[in-house]
Amino acid sequence: MILVYVETSAEGIQEVSLETVTFARTLSEAGNGVPIDAVVVGPAPNDLSTELASYGVRNVHHASGDDFDLFSGAATASAVIAARQVAGSVVVMAGGTNRGNEVVARVATRLDVPMAANVVSFHGLSPFVVTRQVVGGAALEEMRLGKRPAVFSVAGHAVEPVPAETPGAGSIVPLAVDLAPEDLLGRVTSVEGADTDDADSLKSARVVVGAGRGAGGPDGFGDVIELAELLGGTLGVSRVVTSLGWRPHHEQVGQTGSRISPEVYIPCGISGAIQHWAGCASSKVILAINTDAEAPMMTKATYAVVGDMHEVVPAINEEIRRRRG
């Protein structure tokens, strides 16, 4: 039995969770079709059952109620452990988001088993050996998960989310969880909402203009935003940009951000680290602009322009405006 911790928000199921269920299916096939259950904690979208059913999920264990309205890592782990007991799972997995990693780390700790973060593939079932990203994805580690349950997270965008050929039942099973008082000590008290619609428009954009550390600072985005507007597109940024607080997180492209698949992606001043690449690799055409001709983004792109984005991008904007008259 495989159990997947599925992350949801008001908008629906997180894409990374659907990728993880897809990964779980390859594991299930290798294990002669062991069923896949999901565990959902807290408020859930209406189409939870149908969507997870289409991905081949048998039962959806759902913990809800006041205690789960706001996130607590410990309470979520208790819910996952309760679901594992009901389902009898020998594998517990989650998407490799910050939250997913936290939850499976807590589950593994409480069950006194190892946890592998950011897994990209598995080899053989006994012993159960996984390959996972280390050194920020620049290297891979083969790691043995010697105890049961095998607990791990799946690296974001390491697999495509694909619905199952044979859907599952997707039955919602209410989950009773005995919470200890300390489960609620480290709990979110409030959330200042980000505009998640913007992340959706990034995922579905035909044109994305990207900007990374090369933008130089919070005021360095004027030209790229203008280019995005001229092309009817959207701005996407690297993690450096969101970490430094130059732009909001919902604009981030990559393993821990959105996965985009536009007709044209124009990354400016982005080096093309593997975690960024994970989010933009399915772009049809990539036109990179960078001062460093050897940057990974420049060599992996379809087209490359060597130069300072603060000179090249305004010149492109000017040329577009000139041709439009």
């Binding site: 290297a139 990179a288 060599t299 130069g307 010149a315 492109i316 000017e318």
Partner: peptide
């Protein structure tokens, strides 16, 4: 639990360089 480390296969490089600097704007 580490068995060993490996390096991921390099991504093939096939970029067509359009040019250098703002003069490339027309080609772009």
């Amino acid at each position: 639990g580490r068995v060993k480390l490996t390096l991921p296969p390099p991504t093939p490089t096939n970029a067509e360089v359009l040019g250098e600097g703002p003069e490339t704007a027309k080609v772009v």
